[in-house]
Simulated assay, not measured.
Amino acid sequence: MPIESDEELREVLDYENVAVVGCSSTPGKDAHDVPKYLQEHGYTVVPVNPYADEVLGREAYDSLSEVEERVDVVDVFRPSEEVAGIVDEAIDRDDVKAVWTQLGIRDDEAAAKAEDAGLRVVQDKCIKVEHRRLLG
Rank of each mutant, 00 (worst) to 15 (best):
residue 47 P to C: 03
residue 120 R to S: 15
residue 89 E to H: 10
residue 93 R to A: 00
residue 93 R to S: 00
residue 28 G to H: 12
residue 28 G to Q: 06
residue 49 N to S: 03
residue 81 E to G: 03
residue 131 H to W: 12
residue 40 E to N: 14
residue 77 F to E: 05
residue 45 V to C: 06
residue 50 P to Y: 03
residue 75 D to H: 12
residue 121 V to S: 06
residue 91 I to S: 03
residue 110 A to Q: 10
residue 28 G to P: 07
residue 71 V to F: 02
residue 89 E to R: 13
residue 62 D to M: 07
residue 86 I to N: 01
residue 109 E to P: 09
residue 71 V to Y: 01
residue 91 I to W: 08
residue 116 D to S: 02
residue 24 S to A: 07
residue 129 V to Y: 10
residue 122 V to C: 09
residue 66 E to D: 14
residue 136 G to C: 06
residue 63 S to M: 05
residue 26 T to I: 08
residue 100 W to H: 06
residue 12 V to G: 02
residue 104 G to Q: 15
residue 116 D to C: 02
residue 41 H to W: 13
residue 93 R to I: 00
residue 67 V to I: 02
residue 46 V to K: 06
residue 90 A to M: 01
residue 127 I to W: 09
residue 33 D to F: 07
residue 89 E to Q: 15
residue 73 V to N: 00
residue 99 V to R: 11
residue 121 V to N: 11
residue 76 V to W: 14
residue 21 V to A: 03
residue 19 A to W: 15
residue 67 V to W: 08
residue 76 V to F: 08
residue 129 V to C: 10
residue 89 E to K: 08
residue 6 D to E: 15
residue 24 S to E: 13
residue 108 D to V: 07
residue 41 H to Q: 13
residue 62 D to R: 14
residue 24 S to N: 11
residue 51 Y to W: 13
residue 77 F to W: 11
residue 35 P to S: 08
residue 109 E to R: 10
